[in-house]
Design a binder for these strands. Structure first.
Lengths: 343, 343
DNA sequence: CGTCAGCAGAAAAACGTTTTAATGGCCTTG
DNA sequence: CAAGGCCATTAAAACGTTTTTCTGCTGACG
């Protein structure tokens, strides 16, 4: 009941007039209820309900100098990894009344920059970003405006900012170690662009594991670099590998999307998994367990990543004085399934 | 180069002063470049770059009375169906310089309402929403403020608004028809809450197909209603069906997530698919083709849904005079794979 | 040569809030 | 009883744009 169907938009002034108080008092009811006498407060609240008043966010942002929105810039919203992160972010933000502005760069530098500009225009309160490369100047548009930034799935290089990440070196190490344990000595690494930090570090981790096992990483691990990190690219990687004539004994994929595409490509070509080739992915997305041959993977605490990043960001925004920057690093976890079942 | 590292935030006034013009002229350079003499314009643009000026979106929104943001409210951002829609939306919006505010309701009425309020506060230019139920009053907070709404994956009931949907009756009909073609006569329908329109209509479509085939829908199709529509719920549905002692000959799932979970559950219990039970899902998400037994499904033009909905919305916003409301209805498409392979 | 149209730009008001300083009433205290 | 302090509230300025109205100026035309 009591929805103001007054057509147009009702401002704080009209509420004030109707309640017989000044606009300032209405503002106080909204933002510092304890400063208003109980009786006045309830009268104002009553009028607010009757008139269906909704605070004009832009006016509030303009005057107060800070907004109730945060920006979220991910690389690919089509990837369940980022979707899970986004769900975590949305969860916390919505709880606290923050709006989340979404930007997906698709790995496109121009698009990422355009998104950052939109965030800057909106004067987002803070920004959560999984940077698509190492360019440190990229975020200047944002930082120049004093907007806090938390890096997601990317460790901060300096101690003056927060970050939430998962150790990709360990992850790569674990994956390769697992393949070695299965008896493989000739490995391939199917990856996205090697400009992406995650791709490089997972590879480096794998190399370290090979070296530690007494193998020469240069010959024991051949990289297949694809321009994208989705299932389609994985399928094309399968074609490439098959066309090359000599399949490796085991394949480590930089993410599950690549792995699922690769798996499909190989199975279609009559390659048996894991008998002919073992495969391990990365991220442990929900669908990894349901694939044709269930996919071994490296699990990351995705939802948590989003939640904690958002909590850190909002803490930094709300308590600039007491906030201590944190660089949180989670450890990934091996999930062994059929695709790497040892003989 | 030429990034204004002037720390704080630079306003249109400072640009004006620096360029020796009035703030109004700077505004014109920004919004109506053709009204400004070429020489003046380039001088102002030069200063804008030098100072690293970025328009304050809130001030602009406040004064102009309209924002450059749109709201997107979906039911479950974790579902690839909505993710694909979101990708389409983001694509168009970002191209046109609009920011997308994301809200995921998780089917929770309270959360949806909270999100709508946030959209209202932000004075979004327009709203794209997949309503989680039929409640017509839900959107009043939005419509009272004159914000355009386009329904996504939901046909509009009245001709005074736009909608983009896919025919769920046809989809249900097609799915059931396909199962009947495989020789099944005892079917089950694994679905989410039957308060969700899509779930009901797909069921009704299936029933019509049964009736048309001379079967009694009441006995030939038993519904298994789950509280959620994700893989976990699908797996639990498998347990339910197995516990019931008598498996149907074929199962139609209201979406692919349910189907994938169900498939996994059945396979783990030793049920052979499609030999013992055929399964068909809905949405044809990317992962349907890669599952243990590749999943037959009903494909919807998801990305397109998002793109077109956004185009309609922005057309409605930008040309309120000439805009003609459209209720667009796509037809779904059967994708037959192994999970319904006929004997 | 005078008038008028057209154009570039300036000045100022306005958008809806928040916030600071000011006001008046009431209670406490000496 | 007077002075001071506290409290709830008000008045008014400010945030950074956009937009409308207005002012000079230039050039064209009769």
């Amino acid at each position: 009941m009591a929805t103001g169907s007054a057509g147009g938009t009702v401002s704080i002034k009209e509420v004030a007039a109707q309640a017989g108080v000044s606009p300032g008092t209405v503002s106080n009811v909204l933002n510092r209820p304890h400063k208003v006498a109980a009786e006045t407060r309830s009268r104002v609240e009553q009028v607010i309900r009757e008139l269906g008043f909704v605070r004009h966010g832009s006016a509030s942002t303009l005057r107060a100098g800070q907004s109730r929105t945060i920006g979220l810039s991910v690389i690919d919203i089509g990837n369940p990894f980022f979707t899970d992160v986004a769900a975590g972010v949305e969860d916390v933000a919505s709880e606290l009344g923050y709006a989340v502005i979404l930007g997906s760069s698709s790995g496109d530098r121009v698009k990422e920059e355009r998104n950052l500009r939109v965030f800057a225009e909106q004067r987002v309160r803070g920004l959560l970003i999984t940077p698509s490369d190492e360019d440190p100047g990229r975020l200047d548009v944002i930082r120049d405006r004093g907007i806090s930034v938390v890096l997601v799935d990317h460790p901060a290089h300096s101690p003056d900012q927060c970050s939430v990440a998962v150790n990709d070196i360990t992850g790569g190490w674990t994956a390769a170690r697992h393949l070695l344990d299965g008896g493989a000595t000739r490995l391939a690494y199917v990856t996205g662009p090697l400009t992406i930090r995650q791709c490089i570090e997972r590879m480096n981790g794998a190399r370290q594991a090979l070296a530690a096992a007494g193998l020469d990483p240069a010959t024991a691990l051949s990289a297949v670099e694809m321009p994208a990190m989705n299932a389609k690219a994985g399928q094309r990687a399968a074609e490439t590998l098959i066309a090359s004539g000599r399949l490796p004994e085991a394949i480590f994929c930089a993410n599950d999307l690549l792995a699922l595409g690769l798996l499909r490509g190989l199975l279609q070509a009559g390659v048996r998994v894991p008998d002919d080739v073992a495969i391990i992915g990365y991220d442990d997305i929900d669908f990894a367990a349901a694939s044709a041959v269930s996919l071994s993977s490296i699990r990351q605490p995705t939802f948590k990543l989003g939640r904690i990043a958002t909590e850190l960001l909002l803490d930094e925004c709300d308590n600039p004085g007491s906030h201590a920057h944190q660089q949180i690093m989670f450890q990934p976890e091996l999930i062994a399934r059929e695709s790497t079942r040892h003989a």
